[in-house]
């Protein structure tokens, strides 16, 4: 038991270190100073309170999409649709935020709730199709991503605005932005959403680890036959898992809509928040606390990387490669696991 636990912590840490090392090799080979590069990366993520604020800002939606995907994974479902659920959640939040007036204590919770609801609905459809007709959720959710993207674009152009490229800015009563936090961090876009994200992580942990629902979801994820035998409704649990997963992703969208941007722009491509959430969930071993830590790492990498070209002269393309390498090693922790076991064996 004991050695196992340390093993589980050791593997991701070693993954990150190997990722950083291989990034360093790439920089060396290309004629850049890796120490300078990583100092720039570190400073770009934690260098001062501004960057720290931006890192937290970036971490916030990652936590939520990570939770969304981890939650579905626990029930044996691969929710690639988090991306689409982010988009509908974002749109719904901005819609509520721009279209009505209400005091903050109603407006903000309502916007968050509707965003979660929209994401949940976007997860409900593939969940239902999977439960009722056995259609694979990966295919449906990928398609749903495109539907979300292009529908959102059309709604922004035709419904929310008169063929403009972005919506109006949300009312301040629906905004998560905080002058206090912005002031504290020299105008970073850090907003109160981080508290919602951390709270969501606690909720996820509680549902999965402490409730009947979690017990059933995990059971269905591991073994549908035994779950049926145990008297659980497999179909109901599949739908429920996708709905809750979608709600988390929808909330992630509202973080962008109500916090970071305060509006929504017509977009030609995906935000990648949902897709990055897959890696976050995997790195976090599908646990709530793991997701929070992994999201923090991803947020730091994403924000810190922007600093590498200007402060260390490392070209953008190379930065992308280095970040991808770090993520690659992190995601392929299976290999690391295998290597460690191999070493252990040799020792004996």
């Amino acid at each position: 038991m004991h050695s196992n636990k340390w093993f589980n912590i050791l593997v991701p840490i070693i993954s990150v270190i190997i990722g950083l090392l291989s990034g360093a090799i790439i920089m060396l080979v290309s004629g850049y100073n890796p120490i300078q590069g990583y100092v720039a990366l570190f400073n770009g993520a934690f260098g001062d309170l501004y960057f720290f604020g931006e890192t937290i800002r970036q971490t916030t939606p990652y936590i939520l999409t990570g939770l969304a995907i981890a939650f579905a994974f626990r029930a044996g479902l691969f929710n690639i649709g988090a991306e689409g659920q982010v988009i509908v959640g974002w749109l719904a939040a901005v819609w509520i935020g721009t279209s009505m007036e209400a005091p903050m204590y109603i407006h903000l919770p309502l916007a968050l709730f509707v965003a979660a609801l929209a994401g949940a609905f976007w997860g409900f459809i593939p969940g239902l199709l999977k439960a009722r007709l056995g259609v694979h959720e990966v295919i449906v959710t990928i398609m749903m991503n495109y539907i979300a993207l292009y529908s959102a674009n059309a709604i922004i152009r035709r419904v929310l605005t008169d063929s403009a490229d972005k919506t109006e800015t949300i009312a301040s009563s629906a905004s998560l932005a905080s002058e206090w936090l912005e002031g504290l961090t020299y105008f970073s876009r850090m907003h109160y959403g981080i508290m919602i994200a951390l709270f969501a992580a606690v909720i996820m942990w509680f549902i999965i680890e402490r409730t009947n629902i979690g017990y059933e979801l995990k059971s269905v994820g591991y073994n549908q036959h035994a779950s049926k035998y145990a008297g659980m409704s497999v179909k109901r649990n599949i739908v429920l898992a996708m709905v809750i997963s979608g709600a988390f992703a929808g909330l992630a969208g509202s973080m962008e809509g109500l916090g970071t941007y305060g509006n929504m722009t017509v977009s030609s491509g995906f935000s990648n928040i949902g897709f990055d959430g897959i890696a976050v969930a995997l790195l976090g071993a599908n646990t709530a606390i793991g997701v929070v830590l992994a999201a923090f790492l991803f947020g730091a990498l994403k924000v810190g990387a922007l600093n590498m070209p200007t402060h260390a002269g490392v070209p953008n393309e190379l930065v992308d490669i280095i970040i991808a390498l770090i993520i690659f090693f992190v995601a392929s922790s299976y290999i690391i696991r295998w290597i460690i076991l191999r070493f252990k064996k040799e020792e004996k």
Binding site: K218, S219, K228, Y229
Partner: peptide, 27 residues
Amino acid sequence: HIPQDRHKFGLVLDFPIGENMVLRTYY
């Protein structure tokens, strides 16, 4: 019911044995 296929029906193999003990009564 002691099922014919204990791996398929009888147990959730990735659950701790303790949690398998309440598979039918957990609620």
